[in-house]
Amino acid sequence: MSAPLLETRGLGRNFGALLAVHDINFRLEAGARHALIGPNGAGKTTFINLLSGVLQSSTGQVIFKGDDITEMPEAARVKLGIARTFQINRLFRGLSVLENVYIAVAERTGIAPSKLRPAGTRKNVVDEAMHMLETVKLQDAAGSLVSELPYGRQRLVEIAIALGLRSEVLLLDEPAAGVPSAETHIILDAVAGLPKHIGVLIIEHDMDVVFRFAERITVMVAGSVFTEGTPEQIRADERVRAVYLGQEAHRGAAHG
């Protein structure tokens, strides 16, 4: 079998004495629809931060298509084709929704450094940004300031920006958190509409979303991989039930 799209070998990161993530061997294949689950504090977001270059790893390697990118800064990884969304919105709040996506598309197409032609006359970039907004059903809000949108719709802008990067690896950190459940399908549809060869890794707490989306699931507990398998295997795994699903039910009860 050829090299996976994205791979980690013995990846670890500590914050002082705290081992947030350690010894993770993980493969994301091209075309994967992979979910990463685990209780709070399991190190899921830290792991995504290591993959995307937001954090530098303390140990181990990150390999993209066979190339070691462990030392590569975040922006360079995006250029290679690794895009992500954030658990907590990171948007250009004072700009319009369209401008938010425009900025991403402009960076990807390489026109962002150009200084003389007005931004709005780059018709292909504007069109593509609008198209991304249609994908997440935000075209009505294209002209609004991001800060004027309700939180759930801001989450969709977050997705649209990532889509605008047309990456080969898409890392989604709880994309549906804060989105009204009636609208979570928009996110899943948008992901389903992606080209098949893209590898998608999603962190999600909503088990509904996870089982609808994922073809493969990795369970993280206490900073390392607990187990990995198909949704059926994970669903049937008593230990997972104990450490995660049980806790989820508990959490649900506590919230409810």
Partner: peptide
Amino acid sequence: YSPFGQSLTGIRENMLRMHAVGAPV
């Protein structure tokens, strides 16, 4: 009003996100 200017406003609004869209901030 150029794409460069637009990217500057992006940096002003959220520098961290600009890294995450691949901009050499």
